[in-house]
Design a binder for these strands. Sequence first.
DNA 1: GTGAAAGCGCTAACAG
DNA 2: CTGTTAGCGCTTTCAC
Lengths: 336, 336
Amino acid sequence: MATMKDVARDAGVSIYTVSATLSGSANVSAELRARVTESVSRLGYERNSTARGLKRGTSSLLGLIVSDVTNPYFTELVEHIQDKAHQTGYSVLLGISDHDVDREAELLALMRSHQAAGTILCPAGGEEDYADGRLSRGRMRLIAVDNTAPGLGVDTVCLDNRVAADLAVSHLLELGHHRIGVVAGMRQQYVSRERLAGRDAALARAGIASDPELVTYGDFRLEEGHACGRALLTLASPPTAIFVANNLMLIGVMRALAEAGVRVPDDMSVCSIDDFPWAPAFQPALTVVRQPIAAMAEAAFERLVERLGGDDGPATARDFAPELVVRRSCASIGNG
Amino acid sequence: MATMKDVARDAGVSIYTVSATLSGSANVSAELRARVTESVSRLGYERNSTARGLKRGTSSLLGLIVSDVTNPYFTELVEHIQDKAHQTGYSVLLGISDHDVDREAELLALMRSHQAAGTILCPAGGEEDYADGRLSRGRMRLIAVDNTAPGLGVDTVCLDNRVAADLAVSHLLELGHHRIGVVAGMRQQYVSRERLAGRDAALARAGIASDPELVTYGDFRLEEGHACGRALLTLASPPTAIFVANNLMLIGVMRALAEAGVRVPDDMSVCSIDDFPWAPAFQPALTVVRQPIAAMAEAAFERLVERLGGDDGPATARDFAPELVVRRSCASIGNG
DNA sequence: GTGAAAGCGCTAACAG
DNA sequence: CTGTTAGCGCTTTCAC
């Protein structure tokens, strides 16, 4: 592969002129600039980002760590972040934590090691996991998306999870449901607790006591959603509706329901958080609370860019408003 | 951030000893090794991959270029490759070509620029796009997955696309369907042409002439699948079954069918290539031809590792056998 | 078994 | 406006 030195020799200029030309510096005469660009394309020269990164102490790499790419929420997030990164001249180093905080820590170290300018992280853990300050190591900028922990000291971009759950449960309540099963996420995660809190708020407002046996806990993955759905179905007094905390567990619940011959929404109403491309194509089309993923991805990215631009202000937190998308998976209890 | 020099000073050894220890060289006494490891953890030292990459002329980065992460096939591929990479000490630099060969070329240059040891590419183009040899630039090793072009001179890992389409169409034929609509992929792609050829083979074997108006072309994305589905429905003499070339277009077709009030499988049988997590949860559960994605990802990865290990043999091509997964979206024509 | 030292390809401060 | 030069942090040959 040709190096800058080769280009300089070929163009009959100094190595500085080549570097300056490639970086778009104004201090190069039009003539030399032309000679350089010509040599560059003739030699098929491509700048070595590794050397550049070493010298500059930072690279054009951006870390992106999600817990599970196969979850459509994260998939879409990856898509949007990738898109913004490309537009801005960054590349994305992708990490998958698989919901494991140790793996996540490894990945963060990796991003630092590759001199990533910043990293967008969907944290897998809860407050205690981050108490050791692992998120603020080194000088790599970090933005937390989706999940967070209070007092983390990191910029965050989240859904307003309380409102989201409240929206879903209130919808069910309005349809006349009183016994609403819950498939919640992992207890240690702030996002799970917030969603549970939103559900409690809706119940409290309706004057309904929360029956603990109606609350099951999964890990945001399909299999446990399936198990939770089954557990709810085998209750002595099963619910008439189920609120599911995320998309993947929703699919699991739908499978459990189908296997048990429970019809939706006739026998059971179902509402979850997270919209996804297949939700409207289901029979019945699924009623969900949608997260504005594109806007959230953009906000996270913009914040990161601000930080990279030198912003050293205190950590900010942005909450995004969820939206109830009514389709056909929830029916009023009389119509069951 | 601490550097190797800092560690050396702290441990009272030379910089060489630190480097050798970190690289697991045998030429370090147990005592010095211990002192080094201790200093490393005390200082929180993390090796700078950028400097390492510059010096070594290659990095622990692996490029992975897919055309669309939101396609579950690619999502799962990303998941598996990522997994293998992690196990082997590599990190994944993700690129999304968005089905654009120019973008793809940019991404390839990017991977080279970051000294990626190798790249796994799901090519977006056809033979003529790669005639300029753009795939063999530099010394970065390349493996093509999913799509390819004959005579590319690159190792490939693909589905046996002819057999896959043949399997799907034969299934429909056996159920008594004669007018089988087709939603094919982009014409310039080899993978599309192969799938079409497989369908032709099945038809020929059954002694059925191919009606050109039954063949529509999409771009492997949902929207065009939707449009193709609609087009097929509005034919003067519509098909009784539809064979769809991939998962995303299948969703589009299902939507079009639902909108038109066409019941599956009662009024229309549907079969596609690509299984995905939601296929069994659909009403009706979808009959598909499954690609062994995990095995394909593994094969691609292994091949890349072989190449990185110095294998300089001629390009190899591996075809994987598809599997028909019969669920409930295809019915015999009499039962319609 | 250990250390010293020469760069990898590039950027940017300094000189002219 | 252009060239020279000193490293960035690391690996690795060559001496000891």
